[in-house]
Design a protein around this nucleic acid. Structure first.
Lengths: 335, 335
DNA sequence: CTGTTAGCGCCTTCAT
DNA sequence: ATGAAGGCGCTAACAG
């Protein structure tokens, strides 16, 4: 492949002149510029950004470390991050951790070695150490979606506690008294917060949350299926299920149908995080809708602002609004 | 940030010795190695892969250029590419083109500048030029999902013509005679091939495909909605719709429901490319199922094999099997 | 087993 | 308006 030196020789100038043409920096006589551009075209020269980045200590690349891009919520986030980054001339490297700390460390290590300019991190656990480690390498981080026990970091997320509270209030207002929650991993902040919001709503209604009505599992379909099955074996059976994420809800509904239960006639189901209407034939779930696209965009913009030095000095915690969407999956309890 | 030189000084060795420790290349006395490792730990040294890549002319990065990661089909492909690449020590940079040639060129340009080792490309158009351009830069390409008029390139895809043919045969066998197709962009090979398979099935059944029963639009929900509405205004109305992709089908169904039509009692709907069961409460569509995960994996493996020189000399065209899954959205025509 | 030399391709600084 | 020198951090090739 031709280098900047090859182009220079061909155009009869020095490499630095070619550099100035490519990056539109400094003065170049119009005639010289044309000769250089001609040489670039003839040689099909493509500048080597590796060398440029090494020199400039800037790669124009963002890392997006999330749990599983297969979940439509993260897909939307990834898409908005890419859109936002791309508009600013940045590329995005995506990594799936599957909620594993080991994989998270591997990802981050590789990413830092590649000298990404910034990291958008959905922490696999409520653990501040990875965040501090990245920052210790001089790389800015924005934490996405989840809380983390660090004061000195930017966070963009939704209020899980409040969303859950609202959702359970909706169930209570319909008359439900036996409400179970199918949540995610114990040490993931969103899973904890959603349980916390659930408990607060129950207590406020004068109900004592029973431990057997709280289950933790993975944030996926099969966990939802399994947790729902367990709930069905409790007597008296809950009249409503609160699924802490979209995939859990899909699995739960499967379990209910398999058990011959009708939703919402026999049992209600509500869910934190709606499935995008793009994918759904007929919206069914009563849900807390999270602005996934905005979350990615906001986080990416904040990170880019940090990189350009245009962000405010203090670290930010940005809470995006959620809203409850009532649909057909919730109704008054039977009887 | 500390460099390899800092580590070297601290350990009282030369940089190259540190390099050998990091990369486990060459001989290093166990005692020396320990000194070096201690220095690495103390300084929290992270090797700079930019410099390494510049030197080695290898970045351990793959590019994945697709149309829109928001479509679950591409999400699955992206996930499998990342899994496969990651196992081989590669990272993945993802780019969305939204079927735009301009954006495709921008993406590819940036990616080549970043010296990605290989490109997985879902071409925005049936145009061989971009492929040849990338190859001309000495970068291997594997084309995904779509045909391209190049002989000298690897391709991994499904047989759209045949899948469509099978799907329309299914409709014919149910007794349908007025079948319409809602396809994607005219110049995208999968959209063309699915129409071609449709036509072949019709002709074989002694039916002449009517032009008004063929529509082209974007491969998204709103196009599906619009195309379906247009079809409903044709008299006599088609008794079955063939949606050329998943999102088109969701949009079409919306249009049918809005028009007060029941599926499949009043009109049947079949679709090329199933929505993954992870996301669907109750599978409904009769569909051609494509092995999305395998497609990404196969393509990534082929690309990695090319990079390691372990691939066969000839370019490959790998056709992955599809299968028709009959569900509730198709039934005999009314009357 | 370890070190020296040189250079990957580019851009900043300082001349001219 | 253009160029020369030097170095970003790393490793291959060759000593020793």
């Amino acid at each position: 492949m031709p280098t900047i030196q090859d182009v220079a020789s061909r155009a009869g100038v020095s490499p630095i002149t070619v550099s100035r043409v490519i990056n539109r920096s400094g003065y170049v006589k119009s005639e010289t510029r044309q000769r250089v551009e001609a040489a670039i075209a003839e040689l099909r020269y493509v500048p080597n950004r590796l060398a440029r980045s090494l020199r400039l200590k800037k790669t124009n690349t963002l890392a997006l470390v999330l749990t599983d891009i297969t979940n439509p919520f993260w897909t939307a986030v990834a898409r908005s991050v890419e859109d936002t980054a791309s508009d600013a001339g940045f590329s995005v490297v995506v990594c799936n951790t599957d909620e594993s700390l080991t994989r998270q460390r591997q990802c981050l290590n590789t990413l830092l070695q590649k000298q990404v300019d910034g990291v958008l991190l959905v922490p696999a656990r409520s653990d501040g150490e990875p965040v501090e480690w990245i920052q210790g390498q001089g790389t800015p981080v924005v934490v996405l979606d989840r809380r983390v026990p660090c004061r000195w970091v930017d966070v963009v997320r939704c209020d899980s506690e409040d969303g859950a509270y609202q959702l359970v209030r909706h169930l209570l207002s319909l008359g439900h008294r036996r409400i179970a929650v199918l949540s995610g991993p114990q040490d993931v902040s969103t899973a904890m917060d959603r349980v916390a919001g659930y408990r607060r709503a129950l207590r406020e209604a004068g109900l004592e949350p029973r431990e057997e009505w709280v289950r933790h599992g993975q944030f996926d379909r099969s966990a939802g299926l399994e947790m729902a099955q367990q709930m069905l074996s409790i007597a008296p059976r809950p009249t409503a299920l609160f699924a802490a994420n979209n995939l859990v809800a899909v699995g739960a509904l499967r379990a209910l149908r398999d058990a011959g239960l009708r939703v919402p006639e026999d049992i209600s189901v509500v869910v934190f995080d709606d499935l995008t209407s793009e994918l759904v034939i007929e919206p069914f779930f009563t849900a807390v809708d999270q602005p996934a696209y905005e979350m990615g965009q906001t986080a990416a913009e904040l990170l880019l602002a940090r990189l350009s030095g245009s962000a405010p000095g203090e670290y930010q915690e940005i809470l995006l609004p959620t809203k409850v969407v009532v649909r057909r999956s919730s109704a008054p309890p039977p009887g």
